[in-house]
């Protein structure tokens, strides 16, 4: 199993006492499998994604990625994990504005120390970015920027790719294209894919979907 989330709990301090955002949530994901995480706003989807991505730490429970228990790792180890095992795609793309498209695509792979030029070119081609390689992010459309963000994550060959509303800023047609590219490329790379989305249509393109409600799986 690529990813195992076991009874993970997360609380935040609230105005009227601790607020439980995730309550003993458990799930699992295999390599090359895709999973949609759905739920209303505030249900804990993004929090779960952040915990799995080593961006935040759980209060209870364990998360195991590729056989390594990541809950309890220190800051440095978590950074190492994010650099080498995980790719993240955000709603707002979060590209590096000072680097060109080509440099952005290769960036995470170079950080992870496993740049494969052929694979980066393949990804770039599949995403239709070859003609805009020399441009800067601000010179691209929203759809193009999100494709660069996906390409950056996949080019690093992570074991697990996390996407938080990756199509939230795109129109329906572009969102469909981007999502199918995401699914296809992760399948090709045998990468696990965990996507947070509000959209039933987007979720339908993935292998499985789970719904969170008030911090628990429905």
């Amino acid at each position: 199993m690529l990813l195992t989330v076991d009874a993970v709990t997360k609380t935040y301090p609230g105005d009227t006492g601790p607020l439980t955002v995730l309550d003993a949530v458990s799930l699992s994901l295999s390599a090359g499998e895709s999973l949609a995480l759905m739920g209303e706003s505030g249900s804990g989807k993004s929090t779960l994604l952040h915990l799995v991505g080593g961006l935040d730490t759980a209060d209870a429970g364990t998360i195991t990625l590729n056989g390594t228990v990541i809950t309890g790792l220190d800051d440095r180890a978590l950074a190492e994990l994010r650099r080498t095992q995980i790719g993240v795609v955000f709603q707002q793309f979060n590209l590096i504005p000072s680097l060109t498209v080509v440099q952005n695509l290769a960036f995470h792979a170079r950080l992870a120390g496993r740049l494969d030029e052929t694979w980066v070119n393949t990804v770039s081609e599949r995403l239709g970015l070859t003609t805009v390689g020399a441009r800067y992010p601000e010179q691209l459309s929203g759809g193009q920027q999100q494709r660069v963000a996906i390409g950056r994550a996949i080019a690093a060959k992570p074991a697990l790719l996390l996407a938080d509303e990756p199509t939230g800023n795109l129109d329906e047609d572009t969102a469909d294209t981007v999502m199918s590219l995401l699914v296809d490329l992760t399948k090709e790379a045998n990468t696990g894919l965990l996507v947070v989305t509000h959209s039933q249509a987007r979720a339908a393109a993935l292998d499985r979907h789970l719904t969170l409600s008030k911090g628990s799986l429905a």
Binding site: G53, L55, D75, R76, A79, E80, L81, R82, R83, T84, V88, F90, N94, L95, I96, P97, F107, H108, L111, A112
Partner: peptide, 15 residues
């Protein structure tokens, strides 16, 4: 907003 993605990609805050 420019530094957070780098952190998400595995650079430590100290780095």
């Amino acid at each position: 907003p420019q530094l957070a993605p780098l952190w998400a990609m595995g650079l430590t805050r100290r780095h």
